[in-house]
Amino acid sequence: MTDTTMTLDQKTGQQAAAAPKEAEMPPAIRPATERDPLRARIEDFSFYYSNGFQAIKHVDMPILDRKITAIIGPSGCGKSTLLRSLNRMHDLYPGNRYEGKVILEPEGENLIGPDADPVLVRLRVGMVFQKPNPFPKSIYENVAAGLRVRGIKKRAVIDEAVESALRRAAIWDEVKDKLHGSAYDLSGGQQQRLCIARGLAPNPEILLLDEPTSALDPIATAKVEDLVQELSETVTIVIVTHNMQQASRISHRTAFMYLGEAIEFGETAQIFTNPRHPRTENYITGRYG
């Protein structure tokens, strides 16, 4: 036994030295059964890009109803890919492939099933992007866009939904006097809150936030964070972030992803004070390995 290891070591040098280390690593920690009500369940979910690269490997993750779930992990770990899978963004580019299930509760509908229409999925699961991306239209039209897409034409209905979404996004007071001005005249932070309002207007069941504050200054970031926390009382939120302090501040559950796998999922306080998996610990404490 020892002899074999030694020859292996001598032959392949570094690789052999790294291999036993990998083997020592405990397997990913599967999420415990949640007692809180769920809004969605990700089950044995895998995702392949059109070039055959498997970006997500057999991920299991619960999404709690009206709670904030944060996904953290190093660049390229698949966290954004996972988020974009939840509203079928990958269907915009040909050749991408999903496997497994994303079950929307309580109906039990599989969002990535063959008979789920991506357009209908996106009507139920809204998305806010990394960089504020208001449409080149007025503030009012930006928020109304999601309603117009749904074929809502009644002026009164749209007016009401626009105001309510802007109020929920805590930006109403700043824009109520210039609703018909260009969205591009807003500051970056206001634009991002406008994008959140746009996502909220059609009343989605889940709102996905893909690093929503990475392009914002600290003051705008604080406003968005407060907003996200307030929103979690009424809507289920999944947020991807590079900022671990942010994840620890605003989320109720945190998932740590590494190389396409969900390594650990748990209560945010537990993940950030006493993570179970060494890889999680190394990542959040900023260590090598």
Partner: peptide, 15 residues
């Protein structure tokens, strides 16, 4: 046209 504009529109559920 920036990709994020298109994705933003698709993300709202536009066909």
């Amino acid at each position: 046209i920036p990709r994020i504009i298109k994705e933003g529109a698709y993300g709202l559920g536009a066909d």
